[in-house]
Every structure is written in C-alpha cells, then in structure tokens.
Design a protein around this nucleic acid. Structure first.
Length: 379
RNA sequence: GCGUCGGUAGGUAAGUGGUCAAAACGGGUGCGCUGUAGACGCAUUGCCUCACGGCUUCGUUGGUUCGAAUCCAACCCGGCGCA
C-alpha cells in the first residue's frame, strides 16, 4: 500500500531520486508539498492545484478538526472526497499548533529566527493560550475560544477519519527559544507520544511518519533521529527550527538524515524557500512543505528565476512583461506584471489568485528541475 | 430664487468655547513573514530638521470673547427640499 523506492543515489551529496507509492498514486521525489491547511490552497480550486503540478498536499488536523470537523470530512469521503483531490495527501498532526498558537504567539515569532537568539525559554514554562501536559495538549479554538484537546491517540483518531495517505505523529514543536533543558523534556515527551501514535494507529491504508525534534541542539537532534528511527514508522518528518542560516540548515538536515534508516522517506516540515530546495535535497530530504509560495502570494510577493518581486511596489504597474519571462505557467503566458500588480494594489482577489498560481507552479517546477539534476548527476 | 443641512489631512470622518488640532477607518510609502492564528503584522504618513526641536493649518473674510474648528455675520462651494 505504501512504499518508498530509491531510484538513484547521488555521488556528490546525500541527494536521492525516489518514488513514494500511496493508495492515491505516486510521488516523485524530491517533491515540494503545497500547504492546504483547511483542505484548500487559498484562492485556487482543486483543478488549479493540479494544474500547477502539485503531486501531494499537506492538510492540517487541528484546523480541520476545528472546522468543519472530521465527521463532516469523513462523510464526504475523507479529505480526498471533501475537496475532490485525486492525488496523495498528508495531514499534519496538530503538533505545530502547539507551538504556533502557544509560544509562537506569545513571543510574536515564527519558527525561523534570523539571528542566533538567546535561549530564554526555560524548562517547565507554559504558553498563555495552550496548556501542554504529559499526556496531551489543551488548546482554545481560534473560532469561539472553546477548549479543545489533542493527544497522540486523539490526533491519530482524527487523522484516520480525515483519511490522508500519510499521517504525522503528534509531537510538540518546540520554540526556537527553548533552552537545552526544555528541549530535553520536550523530546522525552515527543518520543513517548511517537510510540503512542504507533500504538493508536488502526488504519492499514495510511502511512505514519514520526517527527524528529531537537531544535538547534545537534546532539539532541541525532539522538532523536536514532530513537525514532528504531520505531516502526513508514517515514520521518524533521520538525522545529533548523538554525538561523542556510549552513546550519544543511548541517542539521544532513546529520539527521544520516541517523535515520536509509530506506524510509524523509519530510522536512515547513522549510522551502527556493534557495532551500537544493540544500534540502543535498542533505537527504525527500519531500518538504512550506507556506511561502501561497502565503507570500496573497501579500503580493512572487518568486521568479531572478528572485523575489514585491508586486505591490508602484514600479510594477508600468511593466508590460510577464511575472517571470522564463516561466511556462498559464499566468506568465497570459498576463502582465502591470495587470497583476494593479489588481494586487487594489486588493482584488484575482490578483492574489494569479500570484498564488504562478508561485506554486514555480515551486513545483523548481522541484522537478532538481529531480532532473539528480538524475543527470549534477546535484 | 427661497428654505435647509453641511464644508476638518489626498479620501471617509470624530472633535461643538481653553486640557486640541486632528481620534478612527481607509489610502500612500517602507519593512517583515519558512509543518497558515494571517487577503496579515509593524513603522511611517501637513511643512522644516539627521535629531532635539520649530512652524503652519479646520471653505473665505470679518466680528464677539481673556481665549474660536466650535458662537455671530457676510460671502464662496456642495447636498437635499420647494418653486
């Protein structure tokens, strides 16, 4: 039902060309995974998500649980039926929301910090809006403030109703500000929860990935990878922060890859700006998701072969050329920078949609290019 | 023409004798964003100054008052009603 085949291993790096087989088809790796939190890529319909070349999407257990609820989704035939998506799907476990709605919100930060910041978060501290216990996590609904609870067992139960091809273990995504002692305690919990997820899993059609944590503490990362690598997971996610520069990202993903079983697919969670693609592939990542293309598109930023462009800037209203002259997407074939920039400046939804379409096409195309480079022995 | 309501920043608009000139929204500009709390957040937005600070301004012109965006008069402009 679930299988990972390595077609070629690079002689130059840890990069590998592979195919993941799932009940909903195959994924050629390395692959970029667009983020469809609530069962949609914002502004695109399902056909358009296919048209930009997406092989696999990642949806979110926490957010789908909040609305419309897993019962509704299950009744529609799982997320596949719910959104009429025929290709493979992943569901994130809700572990990231432990951070993003907790310490991330308290400190007004994301999981990537620019500078090497002081580790101010001490063992035993709790975020304001989220309560982390030994057994699970209490959240407040972003909609009505109602109390919600996720644990390894609850998350797996929901994920089985959502029916994605690949599930993730419920973990605690630690803050990049966590000190070593906090990280140790957090890891102990994440590892225990990993086994509970395996024990709770009933579905035979769905694969389950464990999530390696450890933040910027190299030793802890490697240890986490070894502990989880010894468990019966179908693949592995790399979670949390990966340091504050690209060199550290490369080092961390590389050493975690080395510590994991070679024949299992590896998913780098939430990393994937264009410049990260080769870094992830070279250090052994097979799939990776990132909100950047969709998130930035709605703010008017597009990614091109010449770098990022902020289309809200007045200068682009005058430019009659495509977003990226080297891009083969329908948006670049049809519309000008001037048009899309004007729409974005007027807050027209179509502007956000066209930018989203292009960005995703660009990201998927970039991943395809990387596969070609591995095939040709260039990466 | 008569009546009536109004005119405050590039827009909408709060302020109705001193504590006041500009709240709020929207717009502009700049910056940020990596398992989506996010079509979002932060800064800035009369003029001069790197800054400290200084200067100007409530349709116009007068008047009342110790003091006027605020009260009065005339005029200009606009909405509405009636002819």
């Amino acid at each position: 039902m679930f299988e990972f085949k390595i077609l070629k291993k690079s002689k130059k790096s840890r990069a590998r060309l592979g195919v993941i087989s799932t009940p909903h088809g195959e994924i050629e790796t390395p692959a970029f995974v667009p983020v469809a939190t609530r069962g949609t890529i914002r502004t695109l319909d399902t056909r358009e998500i296919e048209d930009v070349g997406s092989q696999l999407l990642i949806c979110n257990t926490f957010h789908l649980h909040v609305a419309p609820g897993e019962k509704v989704v299950k009744k529609a035939g799982g997320i596949h039926g719910y959104m009429d998506w025929k290709r493979p799907l992943m569901t994130d476990s809700g572990g990231f929301q432990v951070y993003s709605l907790g310490f991330g919100r308290d400190h007004g930060i994301g999981k990537v910090l620019r500078d090497d910041q002081e580790k101010i978060l001490k063992e035993g501290s709790q975020p304001n809006a989220v309560k982390i216990t030994d057994d699970g996590v209490y959240f407040r609904s972003p909609i009505d403030g109602k109390q919600l609870y996720l644990s390894p067992k609850v998350s797996i139960g929901i994920q089985e109703e959502l029916g994605a091809d690949i599930m993730f273990a419920f973990d605690e995504c630690p803050s990049p500000l966590a000190n070593e002692k906090y990280m140790l305690e957090s890891l102990e919990k994440t590892h225990r929860w990993a086994q509970e997820c395996l024990d709770a899993k009933k579905s035979k059609k769905q694969a389950l990935y464990g999530i390696v944590q450890g933040g910027g503490f190299s030793r802890l990362r490697i240890e986490s990878a070894k502990i989880l690598g010894a468990m019966e997971f179908d693949g592995y996610g790399f979670g949390g922060e990966f340091g504050y520069d690209k060199k550290t990202l490369k080092k961390v993903v590389g050493e975690v890859s080395d510590a994991l079983p070679e024949n299992k697919p590896r998913h780098v969670l939430g990393i994937g700006h264009p410049e990260d693609f080769p870094i992830i592939a070279e250090s052994g990542g097979d799939t990776f998701d990132c909100i950047a293309p969709t998130h930035y598109a709605r703010r008017g930023v597009i990614f091109t072969s010449k770098g990022r462009l902020d289309l809200r800037k007045p200068q682009f209203v005058k430019e009659e050329k495509p977003l990226d002259p080297n891009c083969k997407c329908d948006v670049c074939k049809t519309y000008t920078r001037s048009y899309i920039s004007s729409l974005l400046r007027a807050h027209e939804l179509t502007g956000m949609k066209l930018a989203t379409f292009h960005n995703l096409f660009y990201f998927n195309h970039l991943a395809a290019t990387m596969r070609k480079r591995i095939k040709n022995g260039e990466l």
